[in-house]
């Protein structure tokens, strides 16, 4: 493949900056990599000699493992740095940490950070290294959105013209934002729903339809995407009275799932809070594609690494 030259980005900070062509290229590339993951020997030499650093300032199992596998399956050297085991605890600045990693000639830094804008901050300061945002605060989580799109496309054959409901704490969800931008760019209608305390202002201006009644939000949609509710939100910070009440009014269950189109799919970025935002009957039901999302995550991340670090030698 010589598609590396066609990809105009040095960093992947958010889906807001990705065009339709960019997303199509990423998805097409991911589809071709998916086959590798199904082989007996799941390894190609594509990124041999490249160094990829997972710099994680927030806990993550799924995303970090997924990026690590993506790198390893393309023969890159991948290492993981987590905030608890690095100089971060000694008070080093983010810039210094990142520049030290860059000085060791890393090709890509994949970063998760609790502060919105942290990957943007790195991208502005690093000179050679590419940055992939693996989730920053409440801002963006682009690789999650791209794997969501890949999964939707596999099931629906297209994205254009579909209606997707995303339900949960929209205000504090980087997944919701990345999915909104990517889905809108690809021509889908996006409904965002949750308790009014979890709906930030300005979503309509960003192209979303906003609901506070989950039944209305789900009606006749092609895709229902549930967001993880952080259990520590209960009571303490005024966003919802109890998890019990949240489950009563905002969880996806077999009853309200009937409001969606009969062939609608159920998605969740994980990890699941069974019995809170999603009932196990739906999470494990026939319409769920949750593990396919996880599988596609590796392929999408291989595609992103390839497009940033692979391709032509001159790059």
């Amino acid at each position: 493949m010589a598609m590396g030259e066609m990809f105009a980005h040095k960093h992947i900070i958010g889906t807001q900056q990705l065009s339709k062509d960019d997303i199509e290229l990423i998805l097409k590339t991911a589809e071709s990599f998916k086959e590798i993951n199904q082989r007996e020997i799941k390894k190609v030499p594509t990124l041999r000699g490249k160094t990829i650093v997972n710099l994680f300032y927030e806990n993550s199992t799924r995303t970090r493992t997924s990026f690590e596998l993506a790198g390893k399956r393309m023969s890159a050297d991948t290492i993981n740095i987590s905030a608890s085991s690095s100089s971060v605890t000694k008070g080093e600045t983010l810039e210094d940490t990142a520049k030290n990693i860059e000085a060791m000639d890393a090709d890509v830094i994949i970063m998760r950070h609790s502060c919105s804008g942290a990957p943007d901050y790195l991208a502005q300061r690093l000179t050679t290294c590419s940055v992939i945002n693996a989730g920053d605060g409440f801002h963006e989580h682009p690789s999650q959105a791209l794997l969501d799109l890949m999964t939707i496309k596999e099931h629906k054959g297209k994205i254009d013209g579909l209606t997707v409901a995303i339900i949960g704490d929209i205000a504090r969800s980087r997944v919701a934002r990345s999915d909104l931008y990517a889905l809108k760019t690809m021509g889908a209608t996006v409904r965002l729903a949750g308790p009014a305390t979890m709906i930030p202002p300005g979503l309509e201006e960003l192209g979303a339809e906003v609901y506070t009644d989950i039944n209305e939000a789900i009606k006749d949609v092609d895709v229902v995407m549930m967001l993880r509710i952080q259990l520590e939100r209960e009571g303490g910070n005024k966003l919802m009275p109890t998890l019990r009440e949240y489950a009563q009014f905002f969880a996806l269950n077999t009853e309200n799932m009937k409001l969606a189109k009969p062939d609608a799919i159920v998605m969740h970025p994980g990890p699941l809070n069974r019995g809170v935002e999603i009932s196990s009957y739906v999470a494990d039901g026939e319409q769920n594609v949750i593990l396919e999302q996880v599988e596609n995550g590796v392929a999408v991340r291989m595609a992103l690494l390839y497009l940033l670090a692979g391709g032509s030698e001159e790059k």
Binding site: Q16, S116, G117, D136, G137, F138, H139, E140, A171, R174, R177, P200, P201, G202, L203, E205, L206
Partner: peptide
């Protein structure tokens, strides 16, 4: 400031 820009940037308003 709380509003569309804060929502886009993922910053608390």
């Amino acid at each position: 400031n709380e509003g569309r820009v804060a929502t886009e940037l993922g910053l608390l308003g």
